[in-house]
């Protein structure tokens, strides 16, 4: 465990010593503040469009951070040959992967906390309320979704050689699941047979990231999600993380590093 945490620590250190995160955060803040300054029919209580915009930016930024950082981890270790001195220590490859995963996940968690604090402040500045539990549910579900994405990208970074192609593929897959995942079965029913089965298999095997996207509930002040279903969603997320990490570990164990 200590080993995994040490590896994770290096990942987090790298992230906050690079400037990507700050740039994304400041850009998000600037865009939101500019949008907030637009007066619509002289009514300064209009907030939901701003909440939606801010959450959209937070989602995009968090996905960018999660995917680009994770996709870089193992290839950079290979390219810079830091993998060699690292694996020459009593570290298993599975531990290394877990450390990388945990590092990226925690780093994204820190980023999310910053983003959601800003979001909460922005919303509270007009609504004068802090639905803390709702924000907690939204942020934690978001974080678990990022966990699945990170595990998936980590597996991808071992399968695809180039980090850029891995990032692109992951962006397309994640975006596709978020936008279409819920309807893949309906789409399948409109298709002829061999393709239909393929679509259905995809539908039943992909991680349904859209469960974790509860932005609509936050924007429109819906009541809390039932805690039982919330817990089930977290377990569902962990399940997929384990699946992807196991896959990654199996792939990594067979690869030679030199």
């Amino acid at each position: 465990m200590k080993t995994i945490l040490a590896v994770a620590g290096v990942v987090i250190k790298e992230l906050y010593r690079r400037k990507d995160f700050y740039v994304l955060f400041i850009v998000t803040m600037l865009i939101c503040l500019i949008m907030a300054s637009v007066r619509i029919f002289n009514d300064d209580k209009i907030i939901r469009y701003l909440k939606e915009l801010c959450l959209l930016l937070v989602w995009v930024s968090s996905l960018v951070i999660a995917i680009t950082t994770t996709a870089r981890q193992i290839p950079a270790e290979r390219e810079n040959r830091t993998l060699l001195p690292l694996l020459a220590k009593p570290v298993t490859r599975t531990q290394l992967l877990l450390g990388k995963f945990l590092g990226c996940w925690l780093a994204c968690g820190i980023a999310l906390v910053c983003f959601y604090l800003f979001f909460g402040a922005l919303a509270a500045s007009r609504e004068h309320q802090w639905p803390l539990l709702n924000y907690f549910q939204a942020a934690s579900l978001h974080w678990f979704m990022l966990g699945i994405v990170i595990a998936m990208v980590l597996l991808g970074s071992l399968v695809f050689a180039a980090p850029s192609s891995n990032s692109t593929i992951c962006f397309v897959v994640v975006g596709g699941i978020l936008l279409l995942g819920r309807h893949l079965d309906s789409v399948a029913l409109t298709l002829p047979e061999p393709v239909r089965s393929v679509f259905l298999i995809i539908y039943y095997s992909i991680p349904h990231l859209e469960f974790f996207d509860v932005r609509d509930l936050i924007i429109h002040d819906w009541p809390l999600i039932h805690w039982g279903y919330y817990g089930l969603a977290l377990i569902y997320g962990i399940g997929y993380m384990v699946v992807f990490l196991t896959g990654a570990s199996l792939v990594f164990r067979r690869q030679s590093v030199n």
Binding site: L141, R182, D185, S186, Y203, Y204, H208, E210, F211, F212, D213, V214, D216, L217, H220, D221, W222, P223, I225, H226, Y229, L232, A233
Partner: peptide, 26 residues
């Protein structure tokens, strides 16, 4: 619900027909 995925997913979406001029979701 078409299947369990669909059924489960509906717990994470708005689920009542309301109009904003009548108070909206709350």
């Amino acid at each position: 619900p078409r299947n369990w995925i669909d059924a489960f997913g509906r717990h994470f979406m708005p689920d009542r027909h309301t109009h904003l001029d009548e108070g909206g979701a709350s």
